[in-house]
Design a protein around this nucleic acid. Structure first.
Lengths: 138, 138
DNA sequence: CTAGAACCTGGAGTGACTACAGAATCAAGA
DNA sequence: TCTTGATTCTGTAGTCACTCCAGGTTCTAG
């Protein structure tokens, strides 16, 4: 089996998707990507289906889905999913993200407050430190 | 050295803070918590300072600070810094937090968008999957 | 045909825990 | 005081999602 026009080497696939070579091999090992064709010499030959699946995986990961969740999404894709199942996963993720944002905004407020009280200089006693240890993160 | 009124066992500390026993030991090993007193038998004896520090660490971790970042925050608390240094470090954290918030808000927007298009149910066509599969995310 | 770029496998390392085995210690009741 | 069962101890290994490396093989352009 040799490379034809529609095929990618692993390096080309990595370049097209922004996913590292090692990571692609890892995904294959873990079964997120299906087993792939090889050349006589053993080099991997990918095609468009791999490209799409890999982009799907990358986007899902970027959105914060865990490996297991990506696996679940892929199972749904592969085997006749229902819209409801997918929506549940997505909404769970959304709730999670919103909670993290709320937490970070509280922290931002605290950090902004205490840093605004400080005008720098070499004074070794700084009220910020007290604010940090007492107030910080309630 | 034996346990007195102000002391906690590791189990009590875990219960008070919601941090697992193994994780507390891990933090001590990694130097996030200072070396702790022991009974004659070798059991750890914690006090309020450990309690506060542990709560601080837990909260920071929950907010997505890495171990290294928590370490930096703790150095702030521990002192030995001039007011100027403290302010710089605080502002660095603040920038960091704001970037994290921006990232998460983009993420939230995307998740909300794609999940809002979905009405659930048993329909086998799902806009979430389509969104993940197509080029529509950037 | 050859040089060197790209690729291969198997294994180890990372960060931040988490789990476990087997031994020692502790606290409370008889 | 003794016993019993809960708790804690150390040290090691496992988890997740990669990432890096060594040492060897294959591919491709000139």
């Amino acid at each position: 089996m040799s490379k034809t026009s529609g095929d990618f080497s692993i390096g080309e696939l990595a370049e097209h998707t922004g996913v590292g070579i090692e990571t692609i091999r890892y995904y294959e090992r873990e079964g997120l990507l299906p087993r792939v064709r090889r050349t006589q010499g053993g080099h991997r030959l990918f095609d468009d289906t791999h490209l799409h699946r890999l982009l799907f995986i990358r986007r899902s990961r970027e959105l914060g889905f865990s490996g297991a969740e990506v696996r679940a999404l892929l199972r749904l894709v592969d085997g006749g999913y229902t819209c409801g199942e997918v929506r549940d996963l997505t909404l769970e993720r959304l709730t999670d993200v919103r909670m993290k944002i709320a937490d970070l905004r509280r922290l931002e407020k605290t950090l902004a407050e205490i840093s605004s009280k400080c005008r720098g200089g070499n004074v070794p006693e700084c009220p910020v430190i007290e604010a940090l240890s007492d107030n910080f993160l309630r």
